[in-house]
Design a binder for these strands. Structure first.
Lengths: 113, 113
DNA sequence: AGAATATATTCTCATATGGGAATATGTCAA
DNA sequence: TTGACATATTCCCATATGAGAATATATTCT
């Protein structure tokens, strides 16, 4: 088996830096593809391909208006990632405490030396 | 260019479901490789390879003790992902409000019909 | 030294990628 | 209908993947 498809879930889709840029850009308000191309300075086909991936995993919604298509980030789909990473919050808080403790121990050793 | 390496950053490393499983397992306390193999039911070489990726991006730390190697999740390295996804929190909260509003509008339409 | 244990690396392979270039599709206007 | 505009898809290619199998490395014990 090769690497999981980028379209297999939000984790894979979001691994691409440009897709993260697009999601950030489309979070505040919907935008037509051309705006994304212009603002992020990417090639149009590239943007279309990224949007396709994002749509497939539900990270963006699309609305057609004439010949334009307006995309917008579906923040709700990012929530699971936030929750998964949030599981580790208590650990990094503990780790900081431990690092601090270790630093204080080192200070004591210095004093004893 | 192909897809970015899994070792290029935490986002890419974490896209693999097994690596997420490993990170969760190693968050609470350090464990030797054999424990991961046994608990998660993966092949030993597979676990070693995943650990290699996780180490390369700083998501786990390693300590050797005799012939065993103890790995442990470095939660701090997950923090950037939590923070990036956290940027969208205000949007999904707004979205929920909007969905609620839309539902209420629909109720009104029903009443008017 | 030699054997057993714990972990890591190498190899092959099917598969997917993202970029670039070219082209296709869909929509509006004249 | 023809042309212009907006977006999407297809093709090619270099590159990386994860699994499996085999093998290598490192460490301890006898």
């Amino acid at each position: 088996m090769a690497r999981a498809a980028t379209t297999s879930d939000a984790f894979n889709a979001v691994a691409e830096p440009r897709r993260r840029d697009i999601l950030s850009y489309l979070a505040l308000q919907e935008r037509p593809v051309g705006d994304i191309v212009f603002t992020l300075g990417l090639e149009q086909p590239s943007v279309s391909k990224h949007l396709r991936v994002l749509r497939d995993v539900g990270l963006v919604n699309m609305r057609r208006d004439g010949r334009q298509k307006f995309y917008r980030t579906n923040a709700e789909a990012i929530r699971p990632l936030h929750e998964w990473t949030g599981e580790f919050e208590r650990f990094w808080k503990h780790q900081l405490t431990r690092i601090k403790e270790r630093a204080e121990e080192t200070e004591e050793e210095k004093e004893n030396a």
